[in-house]
């Protein structure tokens, strides 16, 4: 009778001990998670899906300035030279926007004026 009671007591205590350990482990896991998330707090590095062309128009003032220069140039030779340079910069990934599409857009707007 006494042995059965002792066994029951041990079993019950063990359940509580395991439950406590589980609670502590889960808490530690969440604390580590929040610490990791805290380190990624950066403004500017947005997820690609957020900045994709379908969801976000975006802009590149530097590309647009260069394209303005391209459109305003009077010498055709200089225009071609500049276009090649801009194309090379675009290949090197120096622009945030697609070079050809932005150029097309600006040319259309410029012609409308």
């Amino acid at each position: 009778m006494l042995s059965k009671n002792l066994k029951g007591q041990i079993g019950e205590t063990l359940t509580w001990v395991i439950a406590t350990i589980l609670i502590v482990v889960v808490l530690i896991f969440f604390i580590l998670g929040s610490s990791l998330l805290g380190n990624t707090k950066k403004i500017g590095n947005f997820h690609k899906s957020l900045t994709s062309k379908t969801t976000f128009e975006g802009t590149d003032a530097f590309l647009k300035k260069s394209l303005f220069t391209y459109l305003l140039l009077q010498s055709e030779t200089k225009r071609t030279l500049l276009e090649n340079k801009l194309w090379k910069m675009s290949v090197d990934g120096k622009f945030n926007l697609d070079f050809n599409e932005t150029k097309k857009d600006l040319v259309l707007k410029y012609d409308e004026k």
């Binding site: 609670i23 502590v24 808490l27 530690i28 969440f30 604390i31 929040s34 610490s35 998330l37 805290g38 380190n39 707090k41 950066k42 403004i43 500017g44 590095n45």
Partner: peptide
């Protein structure tokens, strides 16, 4: 224990400042 854990979680997350230097 749970309260201390929550306080720690909030504290570790919000004590890290936002890095706005790139922008």
């Amino acid at each position: 224990i749970v309260s201390v854990g929550i306080v720690l979680m909030v504290n570790t997350f919000y004590s890290n400042p936002y890095d706005v230097r790139e922008i």
